[in-house]
Amino acid sequence: MQLKTTILNPIHREMKAKMVDFGGWDMPLHYGSQLDEHHRVRNDAGMFDVSHMLTVELKGESARPFLRRLVANNVDKLVQPGKALYTCMLNPQGGVIDDLIIYFLTESHFRMVVNAGTADKDLAWMQARRDEIDPKLEIVSRRDLAMIAVQGPHARAKVWQVIPGARGETENLKPFQAAIWGEYFIARTGYTGEDGFEITLPSQHAVDFWRALHTAGVTPAGLGARDTLRLEAGMNLYGQDMDESTSPLESGLGWTVDLKSDRDFIGKAALLEHPVTRQLIGLVLTERGILRSHQKVVTSHGEGEITSGGFSPTLIQSIALARLPLEASAGDEVQVVVRDKALQAKTVKYPFVRNGKSLI
Rank of each mutant, 00 (worst) to 15 (best):
V114G: 09
V79Q: 15
V338G: 05
A155H: 10
E138A: 13
G309C: 00
R230Q: 09
S300H: 09
M126P: 05
N73P: 04
F66D: 05
K77R: 14
F197W: 00
K174M: 12
G95Q: 09
F110R: 09
Y31Q: 05
I199T: 03
K59R: 13
E232W: 03
A45E: 07
N172V: 01
G239K: 02
G190I: 04
V218Q: 08
G282D: 12
F176G: 07
A225W: 10
M126V: 02
A166V: 11
R230H: 09
S251W: 01
S108A: 04
S358H: 09
I360F: 00
E138Q: 14
V20Q: 03
V336I: 09
L137F: 03
L359K: 01
Y238F: 13
G356F: 03
I360C: 06
P202I: 11
S261N: 05
T192C: 00
P175V: 04
R111N: 11
E198W: 06
G190P: 11
F48T: 01
L173D: 08
P275K: 02
V114H: 07
K158R: 03
Y350V: 08
L145Q: 07
H39I: 00
W125E: 14
D98L: 03
R292E: 15
S312F: 01
D340K: 10
T170Y: 09
L29Y: 15
D21Y: 08
I101F: 04
L285N: 10
K136V: 03
L223Y: 11
T228F: 08
S51P: 12
R278D: 15
M147S: 10
L291Q: 06
L237Y: 04
L259D: 07
K83I: 04
D26W: 11
D44H: 14
Y350I: 12
I97Q: 04
S203H: 07
R292D: 13
T55H: 15
G24D: 01
S62F: 13
G302H: 09
A216I: 11
L213Y: 02
E333L: 13
G168T: 14
V41Q: 00
Q335R: 13
L100V: 05
P275N: 07
A149K: 06
L70F: 11
Q93C: 04
G224Q: 08
F185G: 05
Q80K: 14
T55R: 15
T277Y: 02
E138I: 12
L315N: 05
Q151C: 00
S312R: 11
E14Y: 05
R278C: 13
E232K: 09
R13V: 14
E37I: 04
E107L: 11
Q93T: 13
L90K: 06
V20N: 09
P248I: 01
S318F: 07
S300K: 11
A128M: 14
P325R: 00
L3E: 12
K121S: 13
D122W: 12
L280E: 10
R339C: 00
E327Q: 11
G252A: 10
G95S: 02
K18F: 13
L272H: 06
R292Q: 15
S247K: 10
A124M: 14
V71K: 15
L285P: 10
G289T: 02
M147T: 11
A221R: 08
G331M: 00
P248F: 09
